[in-house]
């Protein structure tokens, strides 16, 4: 760890695997985020109407409806049911995230992720250490509150202030003062609480993590025996608490698959690990003992 202290996180991985392999998932993720945004913007900016709407509900090429289940559920709690297309879109999105992991939305789709990742990166570069106490469960309490509040007020409650939809809707339909909310989140993550928004407060992410509670697609550490404790994965992970059980669980009889629903499947740990400990895999492939096969696997690679 002391050796890594002076080095940038992931520097070792760049040395060992080359720049591309040390940034692959990050780059793919950014491509995904910006492409989705581009699809939404092609209409209003260039008149190419591939996707209409925004993340709350969109209609692609006149046949694919997609509904945000969190907004739809808040609306349902107020006593209003979506129309058929809205319900079909809801089912499609639910099934998709059920399979690939709910928080894939956070790391591969959500535009705010780019903002909070930037804040996290800058926080690390500036060496800002202090972080105010804010439990990672707070978001689940806020999630519950938004449902109770929606039912009590009859208003889709979180949409009154939801920075995720404010930013996405703003980029497509006109930003207005929404930039100030986004800036506030950036500064909050930068100076107040490390990974504060996405990792502690955002009920959208909390909701998606519940959807992906049993998703088959997971990050796994099959080669955990090769871990040299450089801590780069913990440094770079937006939800570092999810790594430990899988990475260090061998002695406790815990398999190498990261099972926590809070894992966003961003794959950044795969990038920064110089020992290729991590990989995307299935949750079922979770043998407790990884010592032998892990050694063999890393040889094969």
């Amino acid at each position: 760890m002391s050796a890594a202290k002076n080095k940038r996180t992931g520097a070792e991985a760049v040395e060992q695997k080359g720049w591309w392999l040390a940034h692959k998932w990050l780059i793919l993720r950014r491509i995904s985020q910006f492409s989705i945004l581009a699809l939404f913007l092609a209409g209003p900016w260039f008149g190419q109407w591939i996707v209409k709407g925004n993340l709350a509900y969109s209609y692609t090429l006149g046949f694919l409806p997609l509904t945000d289940p969190y907004v739809a559920l808040q609306s349902m709690v107020t006593g209003h049911l979506p129309e058929t297309l809205g319900l079909v879109g809801l089912a499609i999105v639910l099934v998709f995230y059920l399979l690939v992991g709910g928080r894939v939305f956070c790391s591969w789709v959500c535009p705010v992720n780019i903002v909070t990742d930037a804040a996290g990166w800058l926080r690390a570069r500036l060496g800002i250490k202090g972080s105010s106490q804010l439990g990672r469960n707070t978001r689940y309490w806020i999630l519950g509150m938004t449902f109770v509040g929606s039912a009590l007020t009859g208003v889709v409650l979180w949409e009154l202030i939801n920075p995720v939809s404010m930013l996405h809707r703003g980029l497509i339909f006109g930003l207005g003062m929404a930039w100030s909310v986004v800036l506030a989140i950036f500064l909050f993550d930068l100076f107040v609480t490390s990974r504060g928004w996405c990792g502690r407060l955002c009920p959208v992410g909390a909701f998606y993590s519940l959807i992906g509670r049993w998703s088959p697609l997971r990050v796994s550490a099959p080669a955990r025996a090769a871990c040299n404790d450089c801590m780069d994965c913990f440094e770079v992970c937006p939800e570092p608490q999810v790594i430990r059980p899988a990475l260090k669980g061998e002695g406790k009889g815990v398999g190498p698959v990261i099972l926590s629903p809070n894992c966003t499947n961003c794959g950044r740990c795969i990038d920064v690990c110089s020992k290729d400990v991590f990989t995307f895999g299935l949750r079922f492939n979770n043998p407790v003992s990884t010592a032998q096969p892990a050694g063999a696997e890393s040889e094969a690679r």
Binding site: G43, G53, N54, D68, V71, E159, S165, R169, F173, M177
Partner: peptide, 23 residues
């Protein structure tokens, strides 16, 4: 309670009559 703020009505209005409220 019913509106999910998707802006589909705004998009399909041929006269650009509708807009979505900014913050």
């Amino acid at each position: 309670g019913a509106c999910i703020r998707c802006g589909m009505c705004v998009r399909d209005c041929p006269y650009n009559t509708l807009e979505l409220a900014k913050p």
